[in-house]
Design a protein around this nucleic acid. Sequence first.
DNA 1: CCAAAAGTGTTGACTGTACACCCATGT
DNA 2: ACATGGGTGTACAGTCAACACTTTTGG
Lengths: 222, 222
Amino acid sequence: MNKLIRPRGLTTDVVIFTMEDEKLKVLLIKRANEPFKGMWALPGGFLLEKEGSQEAAFRILKEKAGIKNVYLEQLYTFDGSGRDPRGSVCTVSYFALTPRQTITFDPGEDIQTPVFFSADKLPKLAFDHQGIVNYAKKRLQAKLEYTNVVYSLLPKVFTFNQLQGAYETILGKKLDKRNFRKKFSALKLIKPTKKILTGNRQRPAKLYQFISRKPTELKKFF
Amino acid sequence: MNKLIRPRGLTTDVVIFTMEDEKLKVLLIKRANEPFKGMWALPGGFLLEKEGSQEAAFRILKEKAGIKNVYLEQLYTFDGSGRDPRGSVCTVSYFALTPRQTITFDPGEDIQTPVFFSADKLPKLAFDHQGIVNYAKKRLQAKLEYTNVVYSLLPKVFTFNQLQGAYETILGKKLDKRNFRKKFSALKLIKPTKKILTGNRQRPAKLYQFISRKPTELKKFF
DNA sequence: CCAAAAGTGTTGACTGTACACCCATGT
DNA sequence: ACATGGGTGTACAGTCAACACTTTTGG
């Protein structure tokens, strides 16, 4: 049994999701270096000394998108040979959910400025990043059905239709309006605010907020 | 942005579950080397050169337990500082499910011979291995409810009560016999064989087998 | 007054749960 | 004959899915 400490490249990649214009978006960065220089890729990179992968993910979130409050969860570890031309590179991937409003791009970086792409219309990605995004989407869909994580994609106040729109977009199917309101109301996760959303040429909508913005598992759901 | 390739120790640990005597068991090995020499631990170790973590997991399964057919799934990657006295060691953990019958211990290894412990009565474990086992148990419980993975814990033929016993043990609660049979039968996952289990002082039990022994997701379940 | 999205209940089908007795064998 | 686990059906309650119209505003 030949056991040796093998030095490896250990990296972190983060799939950052948000909702914008009723679409699910993913944050991408144009690679500044080889390999795949100039190609779109997930934000990520090698771990710094003494840094854990989750710390690295938080660092990347802060560096690339100035994000403070965010839902972050480990996704999967990809380390097959062939995934990186440099050889044995192992990446611990994470996925993050955040409301669009909390993201501030650092204008100091020019070429490296990140861009949100619709999750279903991504450009060709470096490495195996398309696979990682697909995996993250699947995980997000599953999580919607038995947790309250949707709170981490929406702004502080939102209309019931925005909420339903988030579910419809991510699950990729239309939901019945009356049944959705009935079911979601029964969960007691949100409460109406005193605000209403006005200014459109239509009946004004009540604005709601989440009672708690902490990740919670639900019994059942959609 | 200080990006450097940091060499790290990369290891794999495998939580091997099986059913024996109506109990859920975990395979442990007494550590032959420091750190934690002589203490019980999950089978695992450093990745060999050019080896991926999943390949390493399969290698460990074969080396330690002579296992051929097995359900193997990546569990989680643990890399916090403080989890290993040697410093930055990152472990990609896996969990495996296998019928007790297919496991053959290599008699050549004496002190390193693995032992099955009841999952709820483990000795004190090295590293953060108790945490890894707890995480694996949670995952297994969840998987029982929406997949058919139970097939990978049971022998080829089994009685309906053995099947129900596996669910009861892992979920940690009693289930209604009639409802269990009704629900499970409706899934069309198993079919009766022509064999019956006789020799006990009681009515003989029909023996069943899984129609397919491939991992499948179910719509709903328990 | 018209367009556009907001908001609201009922019914029938299905699914889940609770529950008790007879059966076939070995000793 | 009896002890032991094997095997079976029904009824009620709760949940899910389908479905259409009225309300309120801005233009």
